[in-house]
Design a protein around this nucleic acid. Sequence first.
RNA 1: GGAGAGAUGGCUGAGUGGCCGAAAGCGCAGGUUUGCUAAACCUGUGAACGGGUAACCGUUCCGAGGGUUCGAAUCCCUCUCUCUCCGCCA
Length: 434
Amino acid sequence: MIDIKLIREKTEFIKQRLASRHGGDESRIDEILALDEQRRKGLARAEALKAERNRASKEIGALMAKKDLAAAEQKKTEVAKIGPEIKALEEEIARIEAARESLMLFLPNLPQESVPVGKSAEDNPVVRVHGGQPEFAFKPKNHIELCESLKLVDFARGAKLSGSGFLLYTNWGARLERALIQFLLDLHTTQHGYTEVSPPLMVGPQCLMGVGQFPKFKDQYYGVAEGDKAGALGKLYLIPTAETPVANIHREEILAEKQLPVRYCAYTPCFRGEAGAAGVGTRGMIRVHQFDKVELIKIVKPEHGADELEQMVANAEKVLQLLGLHYRVVLLCTGDMGFASAKTYDIEVWAPGQGSYLEVSSCSNCEDFQARRMSLRFKSETGENKFPHILNGSGTALARLFVALIETHQQADGSVVVPEPLRAYLKAERISAA
RNA sequence: GGAGAGAUGGCUGAGUGGCCGAAAGCGCAGGUUUGCUAAACCUGUGAACGGGUAACCGUUCCGAGGGUUCGAAUCCCUCUCUCUCCGCCA
């Protein structure tokens, strides 16, 4: 959520930054300001009335203590009419506030000034490239062919169980997936200083609200447990990413400054209902409704946000370097950024069988946008409560990493050589047809 | 799922209609004393929003929401969560 004070004080600046992004909705700013003005006026009036009532009530108490009952009774009748007036006013304020709030929840974050202005993915500058495209003395297979010949994934039966977009990993495929998860968690916990957590896979709507997935993108997520099992939180949702529960761990808390930075990593499956775009990626493992991911989350002091983002990208890149994969890092332009983000780097790994780059990581600094929504603060040394920056990044998404890995390391005989750092986890050096 | 108990400040825990933003203790911060440490003593110590250059002022907050009342931590209703016991269960 954007700071309402900033909207009041730097209205034009906000509008201009919002306009630079896709779906910026800067047209709503004036509406928000009008509601805000009304709310503040109403609040001032209600508070004045309450002050009056409090004063009178105190007097009544004093009169009764002096046994001056007649005077007390008279005072009571005078004050009695203030109550309903306050109530009516408060109901009006609540309506106005709800309207302002719901508009504000639909405003995306402001892009940082360093983010290039652009319309779509085509305007994203490539920041750096690691390695080169591997060359093959034979025609490389794509991952679907490899999965079928090596029996790593049973696409047909996955679809039979749950529909298209769900995968049944089998034998070495399942083991490779598990080995990758273990490898990634060990890397980030032992080498990169993250603390591992394992969160719930179903969360209440306020978690999605907190990170900015609700209310605007509500239809993209799977809901569960409607009806008799819906508890205090209401309906529960399958998490679209570990970011959703993990970033909310400290929701509505005030952390001590010395607790920062907080760095978490978590492995979870991720569930996404987004309809597969027609054509590209509907087959195979590139775009599925359920996939595994190891996620990195940081909560840091605002002045460290920029550095921490660079480090996070480097942590994710390390994964691809260790696995011997060619990749590039792109900086998302204003038009291509996610709703909550102020600055995002994507890491795209090369998949020779596809002949294209696949996004396997997206690292964002959401600044205080999410912290505001979830009311997560820290107390500075001067005693002020401040909003920290919250960062999230994939480290990395699994299904696509799996694709790049087998396509890159495939051999002329149809087998796949396991990269050295993964061998101890997989307990194999090569995956071959049985 | 059944029965009971509870939810108050960083923590423990008093408070059954006005003198309560809330006793007391612990913790924490500052100070006095002291060769150092410790101890003792004194003082202070929640948050949000609004107004003011500021000292400061106003409003709200005792699990959440509603009600009664001139006035609610305190009375009434609903909900949630936690704990204990029983049942069931990976």
